[in-house]
Design a protein around this nucleic acid. Sequence first.
DNA 1: CTGCTTTCTTAACCTAGGTTAAGTAATTCA
DNA 2: TGAATTACTTAACCTAGGTTAAGAAAGCAG
Lengths: 221, 221
Amino acid sequence: MKKCQENYSDFNQPKLILTLAKPTFIFMSLILDNIGKHVTLTEEEKVLFLSKTKTINVKAKTMLLNAGEISRYTYFVNQGILRSFNVTDNIVEHVLSFACKDWWIGDMYSLISGKPGHLFIEVIEDAELVLLSREDQEKLFHQIPKLERFFRILVENSLVAHQERLMDNLSLTAEERYEKFCQKYPSLITSVPQKHIASYIGVTPEFFSKMKAKLLRNSSH
Amino acid sequence: MKKCQENYSDFNQPKLILTLAKPTFIFMSLILDNIGKHVTLTEEEKVLFLSKTKTINVKAKTMLLNAGEISRYTYFVNQGILRSFNVTDNIVEHVLSFACKDWWIGDMYSLISGKPGHLFIEVIEDAELVLLSREDQEKLFHQIPKLERFFRILVENSLVAHQERLMDNLSLTAEERYEKFCQKYPSLITSVPQKHIASYIGVTPEFFSKMKAKLLRNSSH
DNA sequence: CTGCTTTCTTAACCTAGGTTAAGTAATTCA
DNA sequence: TGAATTACTTAACCTAGGTTAAGAAAGCAG
């Protein structure tokens, strides 16, 4: 737990230091494949869609979005790891979601309301991201109705996942929630600081540490 | 807390005892007005949409959906109160959501996966409901793209609400969550059994009762 | 109106997880 | 490489909320 004041405030002046990049060749079709899981676009539609996106490289620790800012972009992860979280009492962080390769992340509240959001979005591991602005997204919904279908399905799935997590938080112990986390995000277990995992499942880093020690003790003997 | 076994099992044989009803005149346009909040349909589109819906009257205590069943319908509430909940260890209920006049409710997981769901949907107060089957809904998405837009927006809003509730559960006390509940559902405070409110905010009925007594004591003097 | 069922309350006791604090291991960056 | 920061662990103590149980109140069907 840390004072977020000091950590995030210096982000305000220099404004996003990032590298505009031609999408790395091996990732060019990752986002199209992702869309292809739910709808089939024509070649022309693919080109039109890609023309509205920007691809950027961002270093670990970059804060892509601060609470209180209006969010314009939805992010698709070609590579790397991000997290979104909020901060209560200026101190305690709560991780809302992680995003790794082939996942989408954004501040839906700010995107749809156009108001300042409550979320921070931070790069945990150097990342290559595809950006889609809400403005372009909505234009694309008119030009390519299949894209609106795609995002409708994407949001439906996300809603179901959030409903399940809500119920899990009400009915499972911290240990059981950790087990589910491990199933859902196996790749993250070792690659993000465990205090963020603790925050995601809803316990303090201290309790998480105690819990993990207990799990080890029980499994080894 | 009760054994759900006895309460719900008798629902299986007689299958939905309900009254097929012409939508009550005063509610005829409630669902159209609701849709009109986000998209504008032509008169023909309205007629087409309504032709795919059924309106029914259901008595309090009817179980519209049991966990383990495949859910075919999304419900819109013209009048009355419903709740959706799951049951863990065959005993403990967790309320996922309430729905009163002008709200939508359904088991999104089962609807989109086509698999048996985990939710029960129960009528708390005699209700008039508009039913839309997933099958018809998807046909309508092709015939009236604006309807797909409407549901995309509806689900986006629902996602934001669920994200906020998730964060609230991680960061607020039971008392603060109750306060938020009162703001969000003022009409329910007195009209649903308070054990359901306790469940919604994530505490036991006993603790809820204790908490309420404390609030009263503090406010009165 | 009456008995039965469901809901609500109260109270004593319990526990999962939080807090504080201090020390140890990793990272990071100069 | 080594000082400084950040992350993790451990342990003693604490508390919000759970559990169990029993009685009171309120709904409701006959």
